[in-house]
Design a protein around this nucleic acid. Structure first.
Lengths: 202, 202
DNA sequence: ATTCGGTTTAATAATGCTATTAAATAATGA
DNA sequence: TCATTATTTAATAGCATTATTAAACCGAAT
């Protein structure tokens, strides 16, 4: 693999693991095994490199909504599908949820950049609008209780993301081993679905 | 007020606002209007100062559970009371939830220190055990559906904390003004209670 | 008035970081 | 082959940060 993408991938690993501020371009170079100046040669500044990593992850996470949302299944199955999709993905990328929120919240300047990026693509707003439509239809049909689509979305994200954000705390505080960690996440998965579905009953 | 506590309070403000890494002892000194060496004179190292701030906040937040838990009201009223208590407190300390999780998750070394502090006080475990007892009683009496007390606790914390963690995102992404921000939080408050109560129906 | 303790300051050592530059090296095409 | 371009390195400027030290300051007790 060429050095340029090696650097990008090392940066991704380190940024996600330790966050932007705690990761130096020297760290990244060391991880790749190249000279530190190369990081700047290819990506000019640490911030630019970071944004490349960040936006890619952000896009990726958001795009995962697309498939369940467009499939032709019932509203409850969709919800189950969304939860499963995210749990599967986060199990292999345990620090990603924290990474996204951490960087998005800690740095207001960056938030502006991401915002512009986000609204630059009209299909994303379209995706959200379609989601709202589906919720409102389900409410109209009496399948679920009345709820603001945004509130439901926040509930979903809260419960999923928090399961992964708190996982390191359990691991350390209760001395969880690998098996217990897995079990914790597995239980959260079913519990999150249970909670969401019950909370939506008309 | 004496300089020592001025420094502590400035540190608290800055640490909560910008996080540990992004806050320098020079920042703190500037905020107080004193020499940077004074910060070290009183608190030796930045890390020690931070831990003093952090542990105080952590204790405070946890201790807020005590009153609702010990009062003699029904399980649903208790839940409502807990949610209200935290919403009230976080409304005046909007960045605190993020602060706690951010620092707790980002730094594994620190987690160890907090863990020791946490388990040093037996009344805290006692508090948690009493909470579990109350949930299990409510389940046995058929007031709520079967659920692991830990899962319920996580659900509660997730929904509350996330309302405040995501608030800056709404503020920026959707250009919320102060009134809209207040309305957002107010709606979340009722929605969180609604979601929790419904999800617990037997 | 002077001494003494606690407080505050200025100065600085030591370190680590980002970003740049110029030179060296490797790769490529004429 | 050789000239040109792309990649990589070493060196370093410039800055910020933590922590320490020695000296200055200041108020209170003697």
């Amino acid at each position: 693999m060429d050095t340029e993408t090696q650097i990008l991938q090392a940066a991704e690993r380190l940024f996600i693991e330790k966050g932007f501020v705690a990761t130096s371009t020297t760290d990244i170079a060391r991880e790749v095994g190249c000279n530190q100046a190369l990081v700047h040669y290819y990506y000019r500044t640490k911030e630019k490199l970071f944004q490349k990593v960040f936006i890619a992850k952000f896009e990726y996470i958001f795009s995962m909504l697309r498939q369940p949302l467009e499939s032709d299944i019932g509203i409850f199955e969709k919800l189950q599908s969304v939860v499963d999709t995210y749990f599967d993905m986060f199990i292999d990328n345990r620090k990603v949820p924290f990474f996204i929120f951490n960087e998005l919240i800690l740095n207001g300047e960056r938030r502006k950049v991401i915002k512009e990026m986000f609204f630059a693509n009209a299909t994303r707003e379209e995706l959200y609008r379609r989601y709202c439509q589906q919720i409102e239809d389900a409410i109209a049909k009496g399948q679920i209780r009345p709820i603001e689509p945004m509130d439901l979305y926040l509930n979903i994200v809260s419960l999923i993301v928090f399961s992964f954000i708190t996982e390191p705390l359990f691991t350390d505080f209760l001395d969880y081993d690998d098996a217990q960690r897995k079990a914790f996440i597995a239980r959260r998965r079913t519990e999150v679905v249970e909670t969401l579905l019950r909370s939506l009953k008309p």
